[in-house]
């Protein structure tokens, strides 16, 4: 033990904490949230075509009229007959609202404005190529990001995705796992390049339902998603265990909303998304870690179509 009082304090502080390690769940949760936002900002660049054989859960609807009946050709005979819960009924209402909403904004270029953690962000997506331009306004952040070539699936690629809930679920699961694996592989490669002791955050052990919820709510954010696919995504959420629905909610701007949430125990995060019940459009996504501290919200403000590529809306 060292001699001076200061040295003793130094030694005590070091020895009494050297067995403490940051929770991989906390670290991975933060990293994961960033990764997820990055994916959404890129508007789901990686597109997987063709639905893989999956473990889709078929829901046989035995509800009053007015609620759409999902296609039952997939394993219907093996699926248990379920009576819709209140949450599922609301999700089917959202599905109907999305299906009934007019087609996407006219014009090749779709401009989406958001507010992310206090700064303004505008993304312009070329619906034909998926190229994405991003402009931002806020203290200390880049005013413009490099153009992301094919940063989003195109309208046609979205339209080619299945709208049968079972097939769509299988596709979402495959997409999500591939993206996760690609992101981790990329991080490992970069860590290995730049650091001798690579210590990539431990990937959280997600369930299939975690993956599906993430992917479905992320895809709903993309303005190129058409009414049929948007409608099907709500049906997928209706058949995903653990999804909570709260009606009569309001988003961060006070807009009336339906709150859809799911607790992801592996990352200790409650992911909440707020939807417009009249149109099925997304209004806000929030991330709430264990405890009650809201950690980041993304507010969806507007979607506008343009025939030509619009300029930087912030005058940069």
């Amino acid at each position: 033990m060292p001699g001076t009082d200061e040295d003793i304090v130094r030694e005590l502080m070091s020895r009494s904490t050297d067995d403490l390690y940051a929770s991989s769940a906390v670290t991975a949760g933060i990293v994961r949230r960033l990764r997820r936002r990055r994916l959404r900002n890129r508007a789901l660049g990686a597109v997987v075509t063709g639905a893989a054989a999956g473990t889709a859960l078929a829901v046989v609807v035995s509800a009053p009229g007015g609620v759409p009946r999902p296609a039952a050709r997939h394993s219907a005979s093996a699926a248990p007959a379920l009576r819709l819960t209140a949450a599922q009924t609301t999700l089917y209402r959202l599905s109907s609202a999305a299906a009934a909403t007019a087609a996407r904004s006219a014009g090749r270029y779709v401009e989406m404005t958001e507010k992310q953690d206090g700064y303004d962000r505008t993304s312009i997506i070329d619906s034909l190529t998926g190229d994405t331009w991003t402009y931002q306004r806020g203290a200390g952040i880049p005013a413009e990001l490099p153009v992301d070539r094919h940063g989003s699936p195109t309208e046609a690629e979205f339209d080619a995705m299945p709208t049968d809930p079972s097939a769509l679920r299988a596709l979402l699961l495959t997409q999500s796992k591939q993206q996760q694996a690609q992101a981790i592989a990329e991080e490992e490669r970069i860590m290995a390049e730049h650091r001798k002791k690579a210590a990539v955050p431990t990937p959280v052990n997600l369930s299939d339902d975690d993956y599906v919820f993430d992917q479905a709510t992320t895809m709903l954010w993309n303005p190129l998603v058409g009414p049929a696919l948007r409608s099907a995504l709500y049906k997928v959420l209706a058949s995903t265990p653990g999804v909570q629905v709260r009606t009569g909610a309001r988003d961060g701007l006070g807009r009336p909303a339906v709150e859809i949430s799911r607790y992801e125990s592996a990352a200790s995060v409650n992911e909440e998304t707020f939807e417009d019940l009249r149109t099925g459009a997304v209004l806000e996504t929030a991330f709430v870690y264990r405890g009650d501290t809201p950690e980041g919200t993304d507010l969806y403000l507007s979607v506008t179509g343009h025939r030509t590529l619009p300029p930087d809306p912030y005058g940069g």
């Binding site: 403490l20 390690y21 940051a22 990764r35």
Partner: peptide, 17 residues
Amino acid sequence: ARAFEGFVSESGDALLR
């Protein structure tokens, strides 16, 4: 984001301590 992830993985334990 990758740079942030690298920082967290490198410094997270020390910050928690």
